[in-house]
């Protein structure tokens, strides 16, 4: 469903992405693992058109999307949940969801606020609260819900567990499991291996902007040397 080949990006003269290649199938969760600054967020931004790639190709559902504006990419059904949450703090929970709303593709039951509140019960209790008056965990749920309102077929989920209490991370893992079960493809970026291995099918390791390793989760758990070298846990 999502195929990235030879994706490179530069900042000034520094290479920040170097021929990144990865693939995510429909209904699959792929985790992009790597240290801070390894290029996880940049990969997602480059896919989304938020960082201009200097070379390479991104194909989504058979359509080349490299060089398109972010809003066009989003309209094709690719959702993006940024690392820093970036909810609209002045807008209420319902208004935040409204900003994300896009029509569903034919044959797909559209996400509604009611369905999302079932998935994230804590949000339902604060529909009219301004986003700025929510806790970090609630804000993280809201960013995911907001992106889902666009009825994407695949989402880029950038470090959803960062800075959250372990209890909230557990709830996040459950939500991701439910989304996967509904057929949504997910490209997840993470540093937290314990979290990632529970929710993902496959893993790709990125280091200094380059893909170093790819394989299934069991393979990763067996490959001690790989984990030692790139993840240091």
């Amino acid at each position: 469903m999502l195929r990235v080949t030879g994706l490179s990006a530069h900042y000034g003269r520094a290479h920040i992405l170097d021929e990144v290649a990865l693939e995510v199938a429909a209904g699959e969760v792929v985790v992009l693992l790597g240290r801070n600054g390894a290029g996880k967020s940049t990969t997602m931004k480059a896919i989304m058109g938020l960082v201009p790639p200097s070379a390479g190709q991104v194909v989504f559902d058979g359509i080349p999307i490299t060089g398109r504006a972010p809003f066009e990419i989003a309209r094709l059904g690719l959702g993006y949940v940024p690392e820093e949450r970036r909810i609209f703090t002045e807008l209420t929970v319902l208004e935040n969801l409204e900003v994300g709303r896009r029509p569903a593709p034919p044959g797909m039951p559209p996400w509604t606020p009611a369905r999302l509140f079932a998935l994230f019960p804590s949000l339902g209790a604060m529909q009219d609260r301004p986003g700025g008056r929510m806790s970090g965990g609630e804000q993280q749920m809201l960013t995911i819900a907001r992106t889902l309102m666009g009825n994407p077929r695949l989402i880029l989920l950038d470090e959803p567990s960062e800075g959250l209490a372990p209890v909230v991370v557990e709830r996040m893992a459950e939500a991701i499991g439910a989304l996967k079960a509904s057929g949504l493809g997910i490209l997840l970026s993470e540093q937290n291996l314990h979290f990632a291995r529970g929710v993902s099918d496959r893993a790709t390791i990125i280091e200094k902007g380059r893909i170093r390793w790819s394989g299934s989760i069991p393979e990763l758990l067996a490959a001690d040397a790989v984990r030692e070298q790139y993840l240091s846990v």
């Binding site: 989304m48 938020l50 504006a69 972010p70 809003f71 989003a74 309209r75 993006y80 940024p82 970036r86 609209f88 703090t89 002045e90 807008l91 208004e95 935040n96 409204e98 900003v99 994300g100 896009r102 907001r146 992106t147 666009g150």
Partner: peptide, 25 residues
């Protein structure tokens, strides 16, 4: 109106509004 909600959202974070499928230009 939806337009108004989008404008208020863009006031805070225009890039994010774009990434949510709104033609912010």
């Amino acid at each position: 109106t939806r337009w108004g909600t989008l404008v208020r959202a863009a006031t805070q974070d225009r890039e994010m509004v774009g990434a949510l499928g709104v033609n912010q230009r």
